[in-house]
Amino acid sequence: MTFYHYLLFIATLAVLRPFTIFLHEMGHAIPTLLYTKEGVTIYIGSYGDPKKSLHFRIGRLEIFFKYNPLLWDYGLCVREQVDISINKGILIILMGPLFSLIIGSFCLYIGLFGSDSDSITFISMMIAISSLLDFYHNIVPDSEPITLYSGKQVHNDGQQIKTLLKYRNLPEEYDKCVEYYNNQEFVKSGELFEKIIKSGIKRDFVYRLAISSYLQIKEYDKADKINKDFLKKYKKRLTSIDLYNNGLIKSHKGNLEGSIIDYTESLRLDPNNVYSLNNRGYAYNLSGRYEEAIKDFNKAIELEENFAYALNNRGLSKIKLGDFDNGFIDIKKSLKVDNKNSYCYMNFGIYYFDIGEYHKALENFNIAFEMDKDTYLLSEHIEKTKLKLNI
């Protein structure tokens, strides 16, 4: 094959890629339009970025084509309606690769047996190659997540189907559990998820939802009990979030060094996990390692500018290092973002305590106590302040 033929092959394949990717995404879109009543959006050349795109709408179907053709090597189909059955969800996901397989097989047949025209044969074979590549790339499960424009992570079609198949044959209570969890009724969801686990259904995602439910309501002993069982079964498959949860449980049970190890491992898996950055920094604060803490808080704030917890905790680090003014500014900014955070008022109290204004310190500690009497170490700060005031 000459250089010209190689060039023609690559150029033709590049021109046809957007066409086969679009057909793949239409494979998802058509059953979605049939099974749901809300909108469907296709992105060609991005994972959900509508900017700098050719945009048009056909009924409930909205389509974005990136202006830059060099980006037309991937796409995304998004449905607005999320409350559909598992079987319909599997079919919608499966139809993308299946569409690619049907088109690829048909064009392969045309290219091999169906035409006497060299041009038609060549184009048919190029479409077949592109479509069959789409099929293979999407149907083989890949555990490596895809980060969307929104920041959310998803997996390829094969991995999503594999995950959804796990949800089949779950007891009826599972849907109720998820409903409780989504409605933030964490006491009910935790108890019901735990009941499902005890019934013998020990899937990783059921464990994760049970642990998360109990952590949300600060039931650390219950979360710890389930987490220990989870670690025995899934220790080799832990995610960054799993390790974050493990660190959170350890920190609330007084094992600061153990929590720092878990947060560090969580950040090895996902360096941009702002929750692990914040919590490791918080553990550093409790250990008196304020310089290290500030580094974690700085990175968390770089990733999420208005991260109230990181701002508040960085404020405490600065105060403990003697930078009272900038520490106070950080806590004030945190309070503007989240005015229901008892830790802000506790840290204001620490600020006033450290500069010797004990009445103001006690006033802020009492506000924190009214907001959440279980705020970590708050009772100790109140007692120390009362001793200073001889109350």
Rank of each mutant, 00 (worst) to 15 (best):
I382W: 09
C177I: 00
I63L: 14
D323S: 06
K373P: 08
L269A: 05
Q216Y: 13
R237C: 00
D73Y: 15
S213P: 09
K233D: 04
N227F: 07
Y275L: 09
S46N: 00
I261Y: 05
L132D: 10
F328V: 04
Y167G: 07
G322W: 11
N245D: 07
T239C: 03
Y351E: 05
D374S: 12
E304W: 11
S199Y: 00
E191L: 09
Y207F: 13
M125E: 13
D204N: 09
S342Q: 08
N279I: 02
A300T: 06
I261H: 08
E185Y: 12
K388Y: 08
I139A: 12
T163R: 14
K318V: 01
L34Q: 10
V15H: 03
H24P: 04
V337L: 06
I146A: 04
F205P: 02
G356Q: 10
F365K: 06
D330L: 06
C77Q: 07
I123F: 15
E257K: 11
Y214S: 02
S259I: 05
S379V: 01
N285R: 11
N183T: 09
I146Q: 08
Y174P: 11
E185W: 08
P145H: 05
Y290S: 01
V78K: 14
K318A: 02
Q81V: 04
F99L: 02
R17S: 13
M125Q: 14
Y181F: 15
L311V: 01
F19E: 07
G104L: 04
C107P: 03
F56G: 00
R57C: 05
P271S: 13
Y351D: 08
N255F: 13
F186G: 04
D134I: 07
E357L: 09
N279A: 03
I331E: 07
T41A: 12
L389T: 14
N273M: 04
L378T: 10
G39W: 11
F106R: 05
Y136Q: 03
L378H: 11
G59R: 04
F3L: 14
Y67K: 15
N326S: 12
S334W: 01
L277A: 06
N246M: 15
L209M: 13
L23F: 15
P97G: 07
S46A: 00
E380G: 13
L133D: 10
K332V: 08
L91P: 03
N278G: 09
S213C: 08
H55G: 04
Y214E: 01
I241Q: 13
M346A: 11
N272E: 15
N364H: 14
G315D: 12
N279D: 14
G258A: 12
I139E: 12
F297A: 06
I110G: 02
F369A: 07
S119A: 12
D374G: 00
K198M: 06
R60F: 00
E380P: 07
G111L: 02
D118T: 15
I127L: 14
L362G: 06
F205A: 03
G315I: 06
S212D: 15
N279R: 05
G89Y: 10
S266Q: 03
M371K: 10
G39M: 07
I382P: 08
F9A: 05
L23G: 09
S334H: 02
D204F: 02
V178P: 03
D374F: 04
R280P: 00
L16H: 08
F19N: 06
N339L: 01
M371C: 04
